[in-house]
Simulated assay, not measured.
Amino acid sequence: MSLRKALAHKRYDVRREALRALVPDATPHERKHLISVAGDDSADMRLAFAHLMEEHRWPEAIDSLIELLADTRNFGSHLSMGGAWSRFSVARSAAQALGAFEGLPVSAIDALLDAASAHSADPFVACAALSALAKQDDARITPVLLTALESPGLDGDAAFRPRAQAAAWALCDRATSEKLDALDPDAARVAQRDTSVIAGPLLVAFGALGGEPREKLLRELRAATQFERETLVFSDAAPDSWGRRLLERAYGNGLSEFEYLTLADDTCRQGALRFLDDAGKIIRGASADAVPRVVELQAITAIARAYEQGREISADEMQALAGAGGSGLLQRADTDDGGSIIEAEIHLAKRSKLFRQTEPPLSALAATFAK
């Protein structure tokens, strides 16, 4: 049986596997036929289609994904130990798929805005829609996100407010992707007073935006002795998990969040922030082995090439290769190229043997600063 014929098989699992096999290499002519699967009687087929479109992002599929936002096939169970709400998995996945597109037409943004504001038997469809809007260009999006910050909790539980949390993360994403110009005083109030899972992303957003709103928020946090939340405002400038390990190697364990922020050597600091003490002097570490440190371009390239070719390299050379990243990422190195500092990309097929760190979710970081 050919894959095309399998798409008409009476069993949905056969049709689904055929769809998964056909989509990756489909020609423009074949796509039109495959998109019709969005109208399949089986909700599992419609769900598979949404997942595939999130991965492959066919522009021709956007209209079908818009229609699937209204799909109310309930995948939930009355035996579930969770809340009493439904689980419209197809609609959720359609929203996630639309969010994967870099630029959506107005019709898709209209549909996501409607879904984000609608009262549905599945409240997490709205959450998915809010997340999908985060990086889109439309003046209506930010007001909708700000309004959603005030959403009540599910089943009257003030501690469980997924729509507000989704809105906070969407605003954070808009700020860090330069889709957001400013946050209003109501958002600052939420950042100061709300629970950490909602306030945390907003604090990062204020940090990314900068300007007087950030400075005003920082003053208010200091006045209220909310120092943990003040630190979170600067978390976007903090080193990642790999960079933290390098700092711990140079200065020992038990560093505070402030020390992680300020002990990085200022010579290679990137971004808009520079940290000064009360005298206006740059705060920098005292370690002889600066983190990050500047390395000679030809030397680090030779070490990387030797490692790539499987030749023996010394412990010092391995340390130089692993500790050269200015941003904490192993494949980047701050290098001295004849008097000027540049950041070079080092591509290693064997990278996994050297670097196994993964970033902790920012939600976990936010919880760390809960006060």
Rank of each mutant, 00 (worst) to 15 (best):
M1A: 11
S2H: 10
L3E: 13
R4H: 10
K5C: 03
R11M: 06
D13H: 13
R20A: 01
P28D: 03
H29E: 15
D40T: 04
S42A: 15
S42P: 04
A43N: 03
D44F: 13
L52K: 09
E60H: 03
D63P: 03
S64D: 15
L65Y: 11
I66M: 09
T72A: 10
N74Y: 06
G76V: 07
G103W: 08
L112D: 03
A116I: 01
D122E: 04
V125T: 11
C127E: 11
A129Y: 03
L130I: 00
A134T: 06
D137G: 01
T142Y: 00
L146M: 14
A148M: 04
A148R: 01
L149I: 05
E150L: 10
D157N: 13
D157M: 07
A158P: 03
A158I: 08
R163P: 06
Q165W: 08
W169H: 14
W169Y: 13
L171R: 05
C172M: 10
A175P: 08
D181I: 00
P185T: 04
A188S: 13
V190M: 05
V190I: 15
R193M: 09
V197P: 00
I198V: 15
L202S: 01
A205K: 05
F206K: 01
P213N: 06
L217T: 07
L218C: 12
E220Q: 15
F227K: 02
E230S: 13
E230D: 10
L232Y: 11
F234E: 14
W242R: 15
A250E: 11
A250C: 10
N253E: 14
G254C: 11
S256A: 07
G271L: 10
A272N: 05
L273M: 08
G280I: 07
I282M: 13
A286D: 09
A288T: 10
A288K: 14
V291K: 09
V295D: 02
T301Y: 03
A304I: 08
A315K: 14
D316K: 15
E317S: 13
M318Y: 02
G325N: 04
G326F: 10
L329Q: 05
D334I: 09
D336R: 02
S340Y: 07
A349M: 06
R351D: 12
R356L: 03
Q357V: 15
T358P: 02
E359K: 04
P360M: 05
A366K: 00
A367G: 09
